[in-house]
Design a protein around this nucleic acid. Structure first.
Lengths: 346, 346
DNA sequence: CAGTTCTTTGACATCGCTTTCAGTCCAGCA
DNA sequence: TGCTGGACTGAAAGCGATGTCAAAGAACTG
């Protein structure tokens, strides 16, 4: 029913080859013929069939971005960065997210079967064997976001979590003068949590601070959960001179809220640090000291890498590492010296 | 290079028709032949070419969801609902968002040109002529989300914004006992803002409260902006016995923060209501009285409608209206009687 | 046993496009 | 006048699937 290239050809009284040439801006078409064809195209409102085109060209100019989930500014920033870069490179971007739970592997499988995409950037939160397995046999060009997956080396762009977390921890033990630090993370299998916890332990070790297994909590990255946890412990933490290092801003915000409600002053009585520098970090009172993760940039870099891979499937795998940045706000005190008993900020 | 149906046919020593039959689970294939073909398929790791398939079938089983932006829980909830429903109906969902600004129209145009999708659900925040124009000439089945676009009637699922806003306003003038209400909205062209402002005016009128043009502010739905605005006015508002109706939770949170910092007690000194019931509503202290918008449901309904449209392009246009729900928390007082000078909550 | 039906299979047209490859036409040149 | 080459154009061969139709053989009927 929709108009095809032959309709255009008939109307313009040329062959389909010529129409095709006009569409693909080939230079070998006479000026007048071209005009005739173009007018026929607009007259019929013709648009090439993408399936037929893709069948010949073996590409769709569409790339995908697969995320474990879409909740949170974190992801939308990645998408934004990726989107802009993808268009810049001549691709259209589509986003898909695994439903609840870990069925990213089935989503990836579906994508691979459909194979209408030229390539895909995938981000996984939990590294399951099934995902690794799917990826290992993947036919489509792909890059991995923020997940160092061992075994097969992938094209990937990762955030140097350790670096950022170490900087934050050093800020805590240094300027903020923590005597003991509580770590509140996500699931123990979560790749981000693993990296941040690692840095936590390293800095504790290097600065001779106590390491107790009971100082490490594994929650779910949610405000509410952290809030409830903190409500129970916050007074104890404060009187023990603790700082809290939450693995994301939302949990940090929950902890700050619990502390405030318990009549504690943040940061004077309890310093709390977050991670990610999402919008909540500025919405919390006091604003959170946190680590800014270059999310938009990560998305953009992923697209760039992906396009290179698409262009040359044989090129060697590349790893890009992005540096996060410590953002000092007020939730851990500004140049606070707790030992001296000074107030947090004037 | 990748294996095609002929490779499978050769290996299994059958014709391509038979392979096709096996793939499409046609019943007319002999048990043994089927087994042979299936083994050939797995042996070669064969996967049908989606372009060729789409070319014949004229469908891809993929539907799209176009959003004006992806920031905010608002959108991710829609996506979640749409995603689940789409899969349920046998479709895969891809999401795309307009970049910054209002180039949804160009995105739509691109989608229409590619036309690899079976249909698309579009949500627009600002109703520009260009978008209406693109939609008017749209070839793909589509539904419109949360935007009553006049002129051509569309399949659409809308939130009955007025209804929710009226309920909230009545709560403000009734139980919360507001004498004067400040409206803080988004841009004056924003469809949501228009509906909410409308309800605001209606309830003011019906309850004989003062309507001053200077009580209406048009911001940008951001926390920061609302915070800055509130910092200037909050004391004046409080002493005038105002309530604030913010058109989304984030702005409401900013206003609450400004009020708290000015030493005001919310809700005793100033009641603040939000809209949307996003996560921030519960993260604010005190938690926000707001209006819950069934976002996930909206996404799901959109998918359902879209699938019906795809199945039957001739069916009459349908309008689905979803009812939002008033959520009373503490930011406007619980059964507060300001006239009696009672404290907000014990 | 001939005729009919059912089951199973393969040949081939088709979808709408891109891309050789082989003209056709005409100008330029010997 | 005949030849060469350049500028355009068209015919036709795929791309990789689906689906139609006919044929081959088995099974069933009278």
């Amino acid at each position: 029913m929709p108009t095809s290239i032959v309709d255009v050809a008939k109307l313009a009284k040329v062959s389909i080859s010529t129409v095709s040439r006009v569409i693909n801006r080939s230079e070998l078409v006479n000026q007048q013929t071209r005009a005739r064809v173009e007018s026929a195209i607009t007259q019929l409102g013709y648009q090439p069939n993408a399936f037929a085109r893709g069948l010949m060209l073996r590409r769709s100019d569409i790339v995908g971005l697969v995320l474990p989930d879409l909740h949170g500014e974190f992801y939308s920033e990645i998408i934004r960065g990726a989107n802009i870069q993808a268009r810049h490179l001549g691709y259209n971007l589509v986003v898909s997210s695994a439903r609840d739970g870990d069925d990213s592997h089935s989503l990836l499988r579906a994508i691979q079967q459909r194979a209408l995409l030229d390539g895909v950037a995938v981000m996984v939160s939990e590294l399951t064997d099934r995902i690794a397995e799917v990826l290992a046999g993947f036919r489509l060009p792909y890059v991995v976001l923020d997940g160092e997956i061992d075994g097969t080396p992938h094209d990937s762009v990762v955030i140097d979590q350790r670096h950022g977390a170490v900087a934050l921890m050093r800020h805590l033990v240094g300027p903020a003068g923590a005597k003991r630090i509580i770590f509140v993370g996500g699931l123990a299998t979560n790749v981000d949590t693993i990296a941040r916890l690692d840095a936590y332990r390293q800095v504790l070790a290097e600065s001779g601070l106590p390491q107790a297994a009971s100082d490490v909590y594994h929650l779910d990255y949610q405000y509410e959960t952290a809030y409830r946890l903190a409500r129970e412990h916050v007074r104890a933490w404060a009187s023990a001179g603790c700082c809290v290092f939450a693995a994301n801003d939302e949990m940090a915000a929950g902890i700050v809220a619990a502390a405030s409600e318990a009549g504690l002053n943040v940061p004077r009585d309890l310093a709390v640090a977050g991670f990610d520098d999402t919008r909540v970090a500025r919405m919390t009172r006091p604003p959170l000291t946190t680590v800014r993760v270059p999310m938009a940039k990560m998305g953009a870099q992923a697209m760039e890498l992906l396009c290179h891979r698409i262009a040359d499937p044989q090129r060697p795998r590349t790893q890009i590492s992005l540096q996060p940045e410590l953002v000092v706000r007020e939730s851990c005190g500004t140049a606070l010296r707790r030992a001296a008993g000074q107030p947090a900020h004037a």
